[in-house]
Design a protein around this nucleic acid. Structure first.
Lengths: 330, 330
DNA sequence: CTGAAAGCGCTTACAG
DNA sequence: CTGAAAGCGCTTACAG
């Protein structure tokens, strides 16, 4: 039951290992006839190459690392799963596999381990941070990597959804609908994406010539108690709309409003990000920004593959969005 | 910038590669003094072993494969993420990495590829099926593997949550509360777990000496239209309670009930599985069965590691559950 | 306790 | 177009 190797094939066919290797890889000159002969034999005796040996000889692993941040709310966000799906779809077609790592973004030990152990040819970071330790590690090591989300680490190949313009367009529409006291509740301030959304929000006000009410901007709400306080605050300040930066957050906002007997959209309008299944069943239906996460993963992976194989790559790719207006802002 | 190898260390220290290898691995006799010397040098020049070379020499990859089913509702279920988290936590401590593959359970091509390419030392199947192609492939290849969920494939090491008894206890409680027309809406009939839950449901009726109403059992509801029809059916048949086999399903049931102006728990009681964030914000709060997914992943991984290293392993492990009674069944 | 040597299964200059 | 040989960086009987 021992595995058949390239030597076995060579011996059986009376050719050299070199020839067999060439027939398989398609690299180097080789006679058509010889190639056919080798390929036929291989097929018949179903020889399968030992990828580890190939790895060692080529210093390639045919693995890509995918880093998922271990966040408190990770179980709430379908985002990563959809995205991963896209990555895998592309990777599989190129005969690459995915080495998955879940870790806290400030803890680079897992990342350093897989890099040090040379277990991957490149890495995809599923989320970027304002001070991005992981991106820096990769830049320093000189390993190809792409970030999902923008970053100021120069060496990164970036693929991003256009959160800034998405948030800007949403805010503009709300302003057009005569809301002006629009509260913005945000996720982690260390996420680049949070900053981008904020920028979009502000630009919308600027374009409309309406002053931003700084008081209504709340970033970094990361627990239920704090969030409830903020919602109370917002209500007291007489806001006419709340934009939440993700559906999990928005779900909690809605919960609090319900508890306070505040009607949506009667008393206050509501909008959210991601259009995920989390709020799918909410009554009223929730206005939301929608992105294509699977496509995002596919593009990220394709770019990484290109970079690994030293092909030309776009340094930055930005994907679109949809604004879906529903009952909650009517 | 070339990587320092075991030969470099050996040469620098005037010892043999064998000695260096032994100092690092801790295998084989070696003098304490020599070992210290090697270790110190390695530390100072931060030598890191080439895992690929080690792999080739040992025929080990230090990777475990994790197979996630590509299901229509995968984005809805936080289950896999929590479980994965547990797996990775254990794997990392053993210096193993996770090779993740998402694929349709009837399509074994991805699995066969990673096995054929010898990219993993063992596999965890995240879900089992009544006719489990993936488990069969692994059994045939003789690779160590553990299944999350039970299976009739003999070679499998199984780790499961006690869905049968969980469902039985829940049903018993509902029966005790004088509900008897309890509808059961299930997921895919090909999932072993679906069958186990059904068994628990039936046993509860048997134990109570109450006849099961076959008419109220609906398995395989996999789209919204069909589901809505079934809910209409259930209402018409005068059921007093609906148990849904997962929170995504339950969310859709609740949506339909709301549309029909049926009050929960006034007109009908509701119970669900998983106790996930999906229904966290629902009003009324939903009675649910709760499992520890992360623990599940940890146990699965630990068992696989043991199997890979030829240690004793429990052939079957069953983890507990909690019944959380809330407003929806009051 | 230590080392020389073969081996893991490929790839790839180099030579012909 | 084809091959002999060295090399990738480890591990591991075997001998001493």
């Amino acid at each position: 039951m021992k595995n058949i190797t390239i030597s076995d094939v060579a011996e059986a066919l009376g050719v050299s290992k070199t020839t067999v290797s060439r027939a398989i890889s398609g690299k180097g000159r080789i006679g058509a006839e010889t190639r056919e002969k080798v390929l036929a034999y291989i097929e018949k005796h179903n020889y399968t190459p030992n990828v580890i040996a190939k790895s060692l000889a080529q210093s390639k692993t045919y693995n890509i690392g995918v880093m998922i941040p271990a966040e408190y709310d990770i179980t709430d966000l379908p985002f990563f799963q959809s995205c991963l799906f896209g990555i895998q779809e592309i990777a599989a077609t190129m005969d690459y596999d995915i080495l998955l790592t879940i870790s806290k973004p400030e803890d680079t030990s897992h990342l350093e381990r897989i890099v040090t152990n040379r277990k991957v040819d490149g890495v995809i970071l599923m989320r970027t941070f304002v001070d991005d330790k992981q991106a820096k590690v990769l830049a320093k090591r000189g390993l190809p990597f792409v970030t999902i989300g923008s970053t100021n680490v120069e060496q990164a190949i970036q693929v991003d959804q256009d959160h800034k313009n998405a948030c800007k367009e949403l805010t503009s529409i709300l302003l057009m609908k005569k809301m002006t006291r629009i509260a913005l509740i945000g996720g982690d301030e260390n996420h680049v994406v949070t900053q981008n959304r904020l920028r979009g929000y502000i630009e919308a006000f600027e374009d409309a010539g309406i002053p931003v009410i700084e008081d209504l901007i709340y970033l970094g709400a990361n627990n239920q108690v704090l969030l409830e306080q903020r919602v109370e605050d917002i209500l007291q300040k007489g806001a006419d709309c709340i934009i939440s930066m993700d559906d999990a957050l928005c779900g909690n906002v809605l919960k609090k409003l319900r508890a306070e007997h505040v009607k949506v959209p009667g008393d206050i309008k509501i909008a959210s990000f991601y259009n995920s299944s989390l709020l799918e069943n909410n009554v009223p239906s929730i206005t939301s920004l929608s992105f294509d996460e699977k496509e995002l993963g596919m593009v990220a992976c394709r770019n990484l593959m290109d970079k690994i194989e030293d092909k030309e790559t776009h340094k930055t790719t930005t994907l679109g969005y949809q604004v879906i207006l529903r009952e909650s802002t009517q």
